[in-house]
């Protein structure tokens, strides 16, 4: 873990070497998703609610998902751009160093410009918190925190799955974007506005439901029965990372025996 932060600080310094590009990219990362949020606001001016969800409730959901997305894109970027490590042959270098491949791939790249997107989602979060008519309690705040953390793990898991695909093919990785970018676009609304099969897919296969619809019910006091379950449900989403890492390990083995 110490090494991960060491990688981070060192790469932060090297990215700072290109200051102008860093600043411009960060600003871009702020405004592009922000426009998407503006369109949500405009949408809600025509229709006051979507399947019973108000603008501010959706804003909360939106900010959580985007925050998780921004953090994972910054910190797990190494997996997102893993195909370049394979193409350059730099993965061989990783294999001759005495550390786990996961740690080294994580440390191979960070995308600090995502601070723009993170700021953007913070602004939306504050906007939602100010306007929401919710009785906040420490439990609810904790749930909110769980949602963000769990979201980071879910996005990371998808990145790892996508990276694992590179062991077999470095083409056609756009498929993975359906899950990351697509998942992000989906999950910025509460999942119960979608068709049943989609809702099930994004709850039981890719567990966005655990950071979205289910805990939101608890925060907005819509739950029936034991609310503790709803509060802890984001933590279940974290478990998604485990099969992803196992598949990754299998991919590494495959690479070592084929050496493509």
């Amino acid at each position: 873990m110490k090494l991960y932060f060491k990688y981070m600080s060192v790469l932060l310094r090297s990215q700072m070497a290109y200051r102008a590009s860093f600043i411009l990219l960060s600003i871009g990362q702020f405004f592009v998703p922000f426009l998407a949020f503006i369109s949500i606001v405009l949408f809600f001016q025509r229709f006051p609610s979507v399947v019973g969800w108000s603008l501010y409730q959706v804003a909360l959901c939106y900010s959580v998902v985007h925050m998780a997305f921004a953090i994972s894109e910054c910190c797990v970027r190494g997996f997102d751009s893993f195909s370049s490590l394979i193409v350059n042959g730099d993965f061989d270098r990783i294999l001759v160093r005495p550390r786990s491949t996961v740690l080294q791939v994580l440390g191979s790249k960070f995308e600090f410009t995502r601070v723009g997107r993170l700021t953007q989602s913070l602004v939306v979060l504050i906007y939602a918190l100010i306007n929401l008519d919710v009785q906040w309690s420490p439990y609810k705040l904790l749930t909110l925190l769980f949602m963000i953390i769990s979201g980071v793990f879910i996005f990371s898991g998808i990145y790892i799955l996508g990276a694992t695909l590179c062991f077999w093919t470095v083409e056609g990785l756009e498929v993975v974007n359906i899950l990351t970018d697509g998942g992000r676009e989906m999950a910025q609304y509460p999942l119960n506005i979608y068709k049943d099969w989609m809702r099930k897919f994004f709850t039981f296969v890719i567990p966005f439901g655990t950071i979205n619809y289910l805990p939101l019910m608890f925060i907005f006091d819509k739950t029936e029965g034991n609310s503790l379950v709803y509060m802890l449900i984001p933590l279940v989403g974290i478990l998604f990372i485990i099969p992803c890492l196992m598949i990754w390990g299998f991919g590494v083995k495959q690479y070592q025996s084929t050496g493509s």
Binding site: D92, R97, P98
Partner: peptide
């Protein structure tokens, strides 16, 4: 790999911008 050193002449093991 703790006990070995590897130099690939065609590929760098150093960090380009550092």
């Amino acid at each position: 790999v703790k006990n070995i050193g590897v130099v690939f002449g065609q590929r760098s093991q150093l960090w380009w911008d550092l």
